[in-house]
Design a protein around this nucleic acid. Sequence first.
RNA 1: GGUAUCGUGGCCGAGUGGCUAGGCUCAGCUCUGCAAAAGCUGCUACAGCAGUUCGAAUCUGCUCGAUACCUCCA
Length: 489
Amino acid sequence: MQKQDLKIYNTLSRELEKFEPIHEGHVGMYVCGPTVYNNAHLGNCRTYISFDVIYRYLLHCGYKVRYVRNITDAGHLENDADEGEDKIGKKAKLEQLEPMEIVQRYTLDFHHVLELFNTIPPSIEPTATGHIIEQIEMTKTILENGFAYEKNGTIYFDVEKFSKQNNYTILSGRNLDELLNNTRELGGQEDKNGRLDFALWIKAKPESIMRWQSPWGDGFPGWHIECSAMSSKYLGNEFDIHGGGMDLIPTHHTNEVAQNIACHQKSPARFWIHTNMLTVNGQKMSKSLGNSFLPLELFSGNHKLLDKGYSPMTVRFFMLQAHYRSTLDFSNEALQAAEKGFVRLMNTMKLIDGLKTSEQTTSNVKLLTSNIYDAMNSDFNSPIVLAHLFEGVRMINAVHIGTEKISIEDKNSLSKLMNDFVFDILGLKEENAVNTDKIDGLMQMIFHIRNNAKTNKDFKTSDEIRDELKRLGFEIKDGKEGTSYTITN
RNA sequence: GGUAUCGUGGCCGAGUGGCUAGGCUCAGCUCUGCAAAAGCUGCUACAGCAGUUCGAAUCUGCUCGAUACCUCCA
């Protein structure tokens, strides 16, 4: 395995760093999950797909990985003034539902969508409401350590005090003074001592239904404390990887680091990995801009910006064609290109087992293998991995039509390489895999009839069969070795 | 306004100081009854200006443009 060569871009250092786990053979990874007050949109999915590939690769490298991804089901406010309404509570009121009904609905949706994208579920998926005690305990410790203060039943983190002894902006690289002196008007922060202070615990308004008892009265936890509490509970005070979307860096992750240091005197994670945004016409996909896509709209094509639907694996492939730290622009054209590329890759994968082997080999499988591992070890560079996988595609097709040769050893290693990367690591899968022995037998029978027609030069009949099958979703190819078919959408 | 990041061929997207990434599209060819698939060939780009260098898309500076964050967002 190549794990000793893995390099990861660390937001902390802004450089590629050699990855070595704290505990030999084990990796602890925490990824910020969704706030379940709405359907996950495609931009959200990109992040989880990126981390899915990272998770899969770490597993492939032989690490025992504990992958923790939370569900935020309380505490995430409408704005960061710590006076806003809890997102879930608000949605619950709007829809006249219990908060936990909202949580349940969108948690199920989230799981469903990620399953369609063929992501592997995390090892632990803790919820904020399931860890109220831990969050209260952590808040207490931060208070005891002198980095927080109480105002009318709300506990605020004292950023100014913290930053005297620590680098508060270590993740964002921002200039603290500039942040403090930022004159932008922000409402609703009368209770805070400093404009950067944020709430660890928030006093519940009388009408609020999201409330728990605490030493400071009824309230609910702040958004940032949950991740600190849950990551340290399940991964320890210091673990290997912490990830999330780039937009979490300046606030959520910055505050998380501060909380952990204020509580445990330790920065939580060695490596911070951040994924970039999905854009539409160059703009970040977000609900507020009204340019977001729901996965199901994309699959069905039921969206005003789409010509047609695209399958989950097409979308996954499309996303893997960009590096996780680059923005990726979303368009019909790009998706169509991805669809064709994906189908080509899948069709070629089916040829591997049947390749004829020879004494000699003209295929440099060793070079291909090291190229692919090098790309993956270089900060999980999936676009380069794909580029090399297509070199494998070319190789397989060339052997298939006989212009190149392959030895049995090379065939076996090529097969393992392609299967490992395409299916296990990139997490792609064959989508129309409904062809069973029965369908296969049926198709062979039809081919037999059609070949008879062809032999009799009755091309009208043979073309009719081909056209009709195509309409039904079976694409026919007349090769030298006989007729084959693929199932299309 | 402040702070960052980025600007690559028809489209999407990698990238190292010097040796045309890759996918899709397009044109031609091979194969085929015709298709499809596959293979081969062609299309050699790097915002602009200046500098460093034997040599820069890759380093430096400036200009222009875009985006992100500073306010909920993966």
